Amino acid sequence: MKTNPGRFFEDYRMGEVIAHAVPRTVSGGERALYHALYPARHALHSSDEFARACGLPAAPIDDLAAFHVVFGKTVPDISLNAVANLGYAEGRWLKPVYTGDTLRAESTVIGLKENSNGKSGVVWVGTRGINQHGETVLEYVRWVMVRKGDTSSPAPDPVIPKLAASVAPDGLVVPEGLDFSNYDFGLAGEPHRWGDYQVGETIDHVDGVTIEEAEHMLATRLWQNTAKVHFDATFREDGKRLIYGGHVISMARALSFNGLANAQMIVALNGGAHANPCFAGDTVKAWTEVLDKAETSAPGVGALRLRLVATKGGEPFALRGEDGKYLPEVLLDLDYWALIPR
């Protein structure tokens, strides 16, 4: 058999290291398409000259674009037969990705637990994105619910990894040379700096974007994400193609420009949950809560820990019901660190 049906839950083994195909060289096309798909306009990722004024050699591609490239590499081996991607933790961006860099991905199985229905299980993997020099540019943990191919196969001994609640401030990696001492707030689009944000503050990003099938299909193909739930309308009982969760993340991050235009670089992903499915026709809006603040050793650079929530309607700043569960209109709950001028 030459075709690949994808891995099922029973095919994973604890400690297994999976080298993912296919390496990908990043071009300016990634940036252009990313900015076409989302209202992304953070200055550091948009302008080589702005980035050079901030101490970098050129504008890196958007941090989430780099994430999507690496994530897409892992899908054929990790989530081709997934029911859903459940969450993220311990993510760190370690080096900027520039046009001309070639990225590949490698994952290690760090947890397994069969579900009580015996038809699926949860797989935890730690993934690294690696450039052409063998340097790790980003790393993260995610966990996925995967179907069983053979429901009679025995359940593995359950192993649930202990994951950090967040990346500590001293674990944040500031890109070499980054300097916000002479940051141009006029060109960036907003005057707000690190000291203007307070822990506990909430920000309604106001704008919304209605998701369409065409843009979702383009995005999922761009990142070479082959998960069946995103492409095959017959794969779900409701006959709907599930919108790739990363598409919702990038849409919400782009919408957050209105109020967080100077949160220029994502450097850590503390946690994240795709709370409810997103489908074509849903209108995505976003709001943010400031969770924490930290100083860095880089000149003029501070860090904000932010909770980014994407919704499909409802009132801003509403997250969970009285039962403690996410409200049905909440699509995404993402906890991340971003760098901002002080």
Rank of each mutant, 00 (worst) to 15 (best):
Y197F: 15
L327D: 00
L37P: 01
T226W: 08
E190I: 08
R193P: 00
A294M: 04
A261E: 07
T202N: 07
V22L: 11
G271E: 09
G271L: 03
A252H: 08
E289N: 02
G29Q: 04
L255E: 04
K240D: 00
A318L: 12
N258A: 15
V123Q: 01
P156C: 10
A105M: 05
F317R: 10
S120H: 06
L319M: 07
G200Q: 10
P57L: 05
P169F: 09
G321M: 02
Q224A: 13
P341R: 05
E237T: 15
T234Q: 13
Q198L: 14
I78R: 03
A89I: 01
V141F: 02
V75T: 12
R13H: 13
D204F: 10
I211N: 00
A58F: 06
L332R: 00
P57H: 10
K148V: 02
P169E: 09
A66G: 15
M145K: 11
L260W: 08
N117R: 14
S256H: 05
P5W: 11
V159Y: 04
P23Y: 12
N131L: 12
V144N: 10
A227L: 01
T127K: 04
A43Q: 14
K119F: 09
Y12K: 02
F67L: 15
E289V: 07
I211K: 00
A59F: 09
E212G: 13
H42Q: 13
E16K: 10
F235D: 09
S120C: 08
E201P: 07
E237G: 13
E49F: 09
P23R: 11
G281L: 01
P96R: 03
S152C: 04
N81M: 07
R7A: 10
T234K: 12
G281A: 09
E190W: 13
N4D: 15
G246M: 08
G91R: 05
P341D: 06
L319F: 05
E16W: 04
L56P: 05
E322M: 02
A261P: 10
F8K: 06
I18N: 04
F9W: 10
E106V: 14
G87F: 06
A65T: 11
W124F: 13
K312M: 07
G121K: 03
T74H: 04
T226N: 06
H192Q: 10
Y88L: 15
T210P: 02
G302T: 08
C54Q: 14
T25Q: 12
R31Q: 13
R320C: 09
V284W: 00
G245L: 01
L306T: 12
K162T: 14
T226K: 08
Y140G: 02
G129Y: 03
T210D: 04
E237F: 14
T99V: 15
L80W: 06
N85G: 09
P76C: 11
L80G: 03
D238E: 10
A32E: 14
S47Q: 07
D282Y: 02
V301K: 07
H20I: 06
G245T: 02
L56H: 02
Y38A: 05
G271S: 15
P341Q: 11
Q224H: 13
Q198A: 15
R241T: 06
A233W: 13
T311P: 00
R142D: 11
P57V: 09
I203K: 05
T202Y: 00
G324Y: 02
D170T: 12
Y326T: 00
S27F: 02
V330C: 03
H20N: 08
V144F: 05
G272T: 09
G134A: 12
I203H: 04
